[in-house]
Nucleic acid binder design. Structure first.
Lengths: 261, 261
DNA sequence: AACACCCGTTTCGTCTGGTGGAATGTCCGC
DNA sequence: GCGGACATTCCACCAGACGAAACGGGTGTT
């Protein structure tokens, strides 16, 4: 139809199924097959198939009491994951810009990934030719990054242990892989409120990070400043650490108050 | 594939496109065509078409800077609408049950619909053979229902006026359609905090309702108790009204505190 | 009780239009 | 300027999406 003229790459079944999904979602109540079919002028048989597919994927649920369709768990899970991430990013962004302005070094925002690693979800780069460059979406081990250590330091002991029990990858010659040594370091992190790392994840780079917590005080993400080793002496790292703790707490507070889970 | 054996009504293009949507949504970052194609083992051409379609529908957005796809505005809108409704329902439900236990009459929850009418989004029925029966999804005019009047009484004057300026449908012989009379009644509603209706929407039925507000004190929904006229004398209506105001305020408070928009 | 009706489900033959390999265009990095 | 990686376009084929019609179960009506 009209759509097709505009963009020859539109796949009709997909487009129409999305219309069905939209319709079900934006109405306040569950809808029956015939109602949907009539409203979208899609033949009953076809509508039926779309509903089966959408239900099969968990985007919709079928209420067998009255043969009506409503929004499914899969859709809600995805939506929730997206909004919480979206919230995190939009809250953190201005504060990250603040940090870049202060230190003129790259500032990173990362969350806990599935496989016990950290995933960069936002990066604001410094305005210098020599700077640390990561990419949004990159994954790194927890134990070799300040971001990961900041998170590990504020996570229930059981979870911390289960992470350290798996084999730890050696990213550089300086990566710490001794479990008891890392544990000692994590106790230090918990005490100070921030974590540091020097050339443990990538040669010549160092990083300072502080955790962002949820309402139960468990770490869900972290912010960090990363810089070439030579530009970040111990004293500056300490300053940055304290500053990061403050910023991370502000993010935590806003997150908990404005968008509780 | 396997899915097909289970359910012959699965439409592959739709199913695969949903997988693409899922993948993009659950990753924390934007993805490129090739990345998606590789990860889902769907040929690049096909993936491209799905992405075009999903983008065309607004479920995804295409970032032309780096040719990556992320969650789109349409998806977020739908998700937000769904969760807010979902929240409203789950907060209201236990309180509605409380009301049914107290009055043993049907309790309704409704929101403002698009066309200036109210849409029932949840109903808990009384345990009696003679009772008011509505259906979730039903729509009724604002001016003929207590639910609608409760909402109209707590809405900016301009909106109230624009609703009353359109022709008002006469649902029963007792429906009020005189604009100035309704306006007087709405001032009363605003003063009392609740609205009533007797046979104005359906013969022999009466209803008492109180508004649920958002953080700016505008009505977004309402709860009501509806009963056969003869079981709801004036005095009981007043009791119910006060009770409903309390309940509606509790819902409002929880909604504003726990799930701000 | 028999009937009519509505709705969800199933079947099946048709032929649309989705598919994917290959060709093309485009943009970087070397 | 060259090579490679990537998005985009083209095209011929045929899988599989489509929808009319038939089916079956449930509900309300006479």
């Amino acid at each position: 139809m009209a759509d097709k003229r505009v963009n020859p790459y539109i796949v009709q079944p997909v487009m129409k199924a999305l219309k069905v999904l939209e319709l079900v979602a934006e109405r306040g109540h569950d809808l029956s097959l015939t109602a949907i079919s009539k409203r979208l002028s899609i033949p009953k048989t076809t509508t039926f198939r779309y509903l089966q597919t959408l239900t099969g994927a968990g985007f919709l649920v079928h209420d067998s009491r009255n043969d009506c369709y409503g929004i499914g768990p899969r859709f809600r899970t995805i939506a929730k994951a997206d909004t919480s991430l979206h919230n995190l990013r939009s809250i953190a962004r201005p504060l990250m810009l603040e940090l870049v302005g202060e230190f003129n070094e790259t500032v990173n925002l990362a969350i806990r990934g599935e496989g016990g690693n950290v995933v960069y979800v936002d990066i604001v780069e410094a305005n210098r030719s020599l700077r640390i460059q990561g990419r949004v979406g990159d994954r790194h081990p927890m134990h070799s990054t300040a971001l990961g250590k900041a998170i590990l330091g504020f996570v229930p002991a059981a979870e911390q242990r289960s992470y350290l029990d798996q084999p730890l990858m050696e990213m550089t010659g300086r990566t710490l892989i001794d479990k008891s040594y890392i544990e000692r370091q994590l106790r230090e992190v918990a005490k100070l409120g921030y974590a540091t790392e020097q050339g443990e994840n990538e040669d010549g780079a160092m990083c300072v990070a502080a955790p962002i917590l949820d309402e139960t005080a468990r770490a869900i993400a972290a912010v960090s400043v990363s810089a070439p080793l030579q530009r970040m002496p111990r004293s500056l790292a300490a300053t940055a650490g304290l500053r990061l703790v403050g910023i991370a707490q502000r993010i935590t507070t806003q997150l908990v108050n404005e968008y509780p889970v």
